[in-house]
Design a protein around this nucleic acid. Structure first.
Lengths: 357, 357
DNA sequence: TTGTAAGCGTTATCAC
DNA sequence: GTGATAACGCTTACAA
């Protein structure tokens, strides 16, 4: 019982033609009940399963989705994958995962590797290096090749494709508004450099919320941190930066951090400095991950609903993939440009915990 | 510029045969320099890339590895994936990910879905439900089908395949020994039910370490927790269980927890009860994830080196896959059984932080 | 030096 | 009701 059995072998064993076997197994009414029974029984016995690769070649579709993300050891991204996998599986697709490690080159290599027939479409989030270089030719190239892309979270206007994004701006507004509502007047933001679009948007949301409340944004209260500080071995550097920031701005009574790490580090630093949370300083983070739930005090956050993002992205992609199928007929009739790309905005939600009043 | 160009199209455009094109592109010396130049230039221009699916069908190998894990939103598993991806990519393989969600049925479905030609081999960690049922026929079936499997972490003796495991027993011994060395005499363990092999092994390690030190294990100090408590919405239940445990055993001066969650929850509960860590109670966890690094105090843990596990598993699998290749020749000569399976034990390492003295 | 043909495992079309 | 045949895109003997 070694190796999978093929139609050919069944045909030979049963002394019928390959096409008879194929038809019998797909329960075609062309075949007599008798032979169908015989063939099915035999196939069952030998546990016949059609070879996916042969089917893919035949149909010129693989029923698999390529996921391309910056990293996988990351709560948000793995959550998105779980969402993608969920609907992909439900709709008969597999997922193949590539990691860019935030590298432009690795992103391209992975993309090309998968674009050569291995997958029907991509769901991806752009690497930081690519964002920095602003070179998106590989995306447009694969789209032009006829492979649809759905981008999520880290997206870019320059590429025409479906997108699923977090409502970063509004989420930030809500977060800062909550701080204002609970009495904060000197609200600081701890954010990233502007080239990461989510960092930029969250900063904008922060400013907007302040202005909505007639509070003049104070540039001193905006701390833009370099990415390199995110690395786990640079935890102390990060703490130092934040401590300096607090020292320079003694009046801070609320902190909005654009990610979990910044938020819990801010809490930790504040606590070490003798502040009580949320009595003296309230803290809200963006991104709801494990750290938030287990921090002391537990951290109020803006949840991005990563799983939902993944689900929506997968649905968007598969919808488009399946539209392509029947579009061939339409194509003969009306070859409309069909460049109506969808941009889904997933609403954020504030998860209230103990770091705010 | 829509759709990928094929050998056939190039052949037609250049008015040569398909095989000439194929040979030219693989730089065969059968073809004249002149035609090679022409064909290569044309292929370059149209960015020709061979179709992976066609190659897979031809070679009867896909150059992709199927990863099958219980969940992906999990630090350990995603770390392992990153390790697998790293060496897989380096060695020319892609990875396709399936999630069992700890379900026996989903594990089987995923397995069968991928086993029909989509992948060359599996790297997997067994779902809890499968472990509970002790039904491993799907594993042996795929192995008999000629698809090699490498199991990691949650492995089982009943299946004959390569395995990569954490040295759970020794890791636990080391952890408990450290507690003993730093003065603990009433060391408790917070563990899982025995059917999860890693839980069982870690408990054994705990007992062994105590006995090595002539300390009689006290059954009261062993807290076996049900899995359902791991769920995030049951955090309070978990805290309550642990609090009851502490209340019942006031003398505890050291805690060894078989995972991060149990460890930090134990710390939290102890702190709420007024204990100081590590002065009054020392805590060590198994599994080095994000929570440990950011807990207060930071948690001393037994690191499992997930990435290394992934790397080793991938190397093991790819080695076997590539041995199969040339084994056909050997097969004609000596058809030796070749049932020498490798079991790699990855040593753990204690990461000392502030929850121990 | 180039081309033909078979084959990888399927399905679909068309004969018989 | 059953079977040849072509096709999916490619490689590789084997012919020419």
């Amino acid at each position: 019982m070694k190796g999978k059995i093929t139609l050919k072998q069944i045909a030979k064993e049963l002394d019928v033609s390959i096409s008879t076997v194929s038809k019998a197994l797909s329960d075609s009414k062309e075949i007599s009940e008798e032979t169908k029974q015989k063939i099915k029984a035999f196939a069952e016995l030998y546990n016949y399963r059609p070879n996916n690769i042969a089917l893919s070649l035949q149909n010129r579709k693989t029923k698999t989705i390529g996921i391309l993300i910056p990293e996988i050891v990351h709560h948000f991204f793995s959550t998105v994958i779980s969402g993608i996998e969920l609907v992909a599986n439900k709709r008969g697709y597999n997922v193949i995962v590539g990691l860019s490690n935030e590298s432009f080159t690795k992103e391209i290599i992975n993309m090309e590797m998968l674009a050569n027939g291995s997958i029907d479409g991509f769901i991806l989030s752009i690497s930081k290096e690519t964002l920095l270089k602003q070179d998106y030719h590989h995306f447009t190239a694969t789209i032009n090749q006829g492979i649809p892309i759905v981008m999520f979270d880290r997206v870019v206007a320059e590429v025409a494709c479906d997108k699923v994004i977090v409502d970063d701006l509004n989420g930030s507004v809500k977060a800062v508004q909550k701080l204002v509502d609970t009495g904060c007047r000197n609200i600081a933001i701890i954010t990233t450099m502007d080239y990461v679009s989510v960092g930029r948007l969250r900063t904008q949301g922060y400013i907007k919320a302040l202005e909505d409340n007639k509070i003049t944004p104070n540039p001193n209260l905006i701390l833009k941190l370099d990415d390199s500080l995110d690395l786990e071995n640079h935890l102390e550097l990060l703490e130092n930066e934040i401590r300096k920031f607090f020292d320079l701005n003694p009046g801070i009574d609320g902190v909005f951090a654009v990610n979990e790490l910044y938020a819990i580090t801010a809490m930790k630093v504040a606590q070490k400095m003798g502040f009580h949370i949320p009595e003296d300083i309230q803290v809200i983070g963006f991104t709801d991950g494990v750290l938030s739930k287990h921090a002391t005090p537990t951290l109020t956050t803006v949840s991005q609903h990563g799983k939902r993002i993944g689900e929506q992205a997968a649905n968007l992609l598969i919808d488009r993939l399946q539209n392509e199928d029947d579009s061939y007929e339409q194509y003969l009739v009306s070859s409309k440009p069909k460049t109506d790309y969808i941009k889904l905005v997933i609403e954020t939600e504030i998860i209230e915990r103990d770091s705010t009043k």
